[in-house]
Design a protein around this nucleic acid. Structure first.
Lengths: 206, 206
DNA sequence: ATCTGTGAAGCTGTTCACAGCT
DNA sequence: AGCTGTGAACAGCTTCACAGAT
């Protein structure tokens, strides 16, 4: 029930539990067992209990979990109990889609800064966010933005990543279709749609 | 060097190797060692060799790998040596970004069908693809499309997923912010940007 | 009786060390 | 000498079985 040596997989499943719990809560479910949550997710109830057990005891033996409490606890664990600010870099097709997406609020995330290098885009306001010149990335430090979503073309990605690190960013969600190199105290999560697609034909054939 | 019992992680790394190899090839690199590829990717050379060893012997001892051969072999393994067709469902912000993206061709992927339920979008042509009525999903069977990219809102996702399975789709890349249930012979890969973001604050704090 | 929390067993994936080619 | 390919050791994650709480 305590710190360090928490599987990475566990951390990645917590948001999925959270998403499902929020949905179940909307449906009026106030209490549930690990079995019920697991069924709803299509995973094992052992998995759910083990994952939660790394962080504390949130259920009652013989009874189960209270939806609301579990949601609050997972928000706490993930540090989503406090509002999280994120910067978005690269307002192309994908960047624009992300900027317009309204589903982050549930998780206490807000995109508070958006950057592009294209003069025609700079100054435009989208969802209350003014697109800024990419040269202003360094201002993220004093605006205490520690999370960045990188949605630039490949050619710009590494340089921007360096600038983000320089500006004090500690986590990068990288949508650029390439590897980026960062100091090892900086978290990077890569999402390249082509990479995901490329696995499918093999996987479908066992 | 042969079949079955190939780690899932290995399959997911192959496209990443491929992407890097294509980049290195563009830079004029015709031969490389597992060490060089690993350095370029920021992973271990053991990993690269072990992953490849599940599928065959593609290098020469004492020498290394030929970029071109390795690219071709990985394309073969992933079945990307033949053109792969994908359908896109949901032409919202994200769907539109995916439809406009031109980076899939490198991996022999082409989006050959796009669907939406919005009458204003149906009939529009984007990148040579005519957006069709979502009611026509069943035609995917005779058009032999086995891969679908699901980019609908949450509310529609499960029903569309059912229709896709019904239409013979065997792999779904799911961008809808929810779980979808499918028969277990159907592959699903979930990408929810909010889920990825939600891990970051915790991970940044170790 | 029921359901959680958890040590231990079992399994899967990674790292290593080195044999085998070139 | 240099680099691949791979069995074996190791590490990490998942599943299990059950003790403990209600």
């Amino acid at each position: 029930m305590q710190n360090h040596k928490i599987p990475d997989e566990t951390v990645h499943r917590l948001p999925v539990y959270l998403r499902e719990l929020l949905t179940l809560q909307e449906q009026g479910i106030e209490k549930l067992s690990s079995q019920e949550l697991a069924d709803s997710l299509g995973c094992g109830c052992y998995q759910v209990r083990k994952d939660l057990s790394y962080f504390g005891r949130f259920g009652k033996r013989g009874v189960g979990y209270t939806t609301e409490i579990l949601i609050r606890e997972i928000l706490n664990i993930l540090k989503l109990n406090v509002p999280q600010k994120a910067a978005l870099i690269g307002i192309g097709n994908l960047g624009l889609a992300i900027l317009r997406y309204t589903g982050f609020g549930k998780y206490n995330f807000r995109i508070t800064a958006a950057f592009d290098s294209d003069g025609k885009k700079i100054g435009q306001i989208i969802r209350n966010i003014t697109i800024e010149d990419i040269k202003k990335i360094r201002t993220l430090k004093r605006r205490s933005v520690r999370i960045a979503i990188l949605a630039t073309p490949e050619a710009a990605a590494q340089q921007i990543a360096d600038e983000l690190v320089e500006a004090g960013v500690t986590s990068i969600l990288n949508f650029a279709p390439c590897n980026i190199k960062v100091p090892k105290n900086v978290q990077v999560r890569n999402i390249d749609i082509a990479m995901e697609l490329a696995c499918l034909p093999f996987m479908a054939s066992e």
